[in-house]
């Protein structure tokens, strides 16, 4: 899936990938997709949990070219969350 913005969180440990996601989700237009590329195991659970807490849509996961997991989030919540 194509993302409007890809955040390279390789090598970051929890909760850093989620912090990066929170910082940059509003860099895409409403309805846009942010991809979080993270090798930290907690991201698999914390990205969806963050989406539920913040009202964004968790689209699912795939893999970056190097095989690292990539978590996709659609910006659906109003600004300022």
């Amino acid at each position: 899936m194509n993302a409007d913005l890809e955040l390279d969180c390789r090598g970051m440990i929890c909760p850093r990938p989620v912090i990066e996601l929170a910082r940059h989700v509003e860099d895409v237009p409403p309805g846009g997709v942010v991809a979080v590329v993270a090798d930290d195991a907690a991201a698999a659970y914390d990205v969806p949990a963050w989406c539920r807490m913040r009202g964004h849509e968790y689209v699912g996961s795939d893999h970056a070219e190097d095989g690292v997991a990539r978590y996709l989030v659609r910006r659906t919540a109003p600004p300022g969350r």
Binding site: C14, P15, V18, A42, A44, Y45, D46, A49, M53
Partner: peptide
Amino acid sequence: LAAMGALTHG
């Protein structure tokens, strides 16, 4: 926490 869908960090 993962099975519950809760935040696992912090």
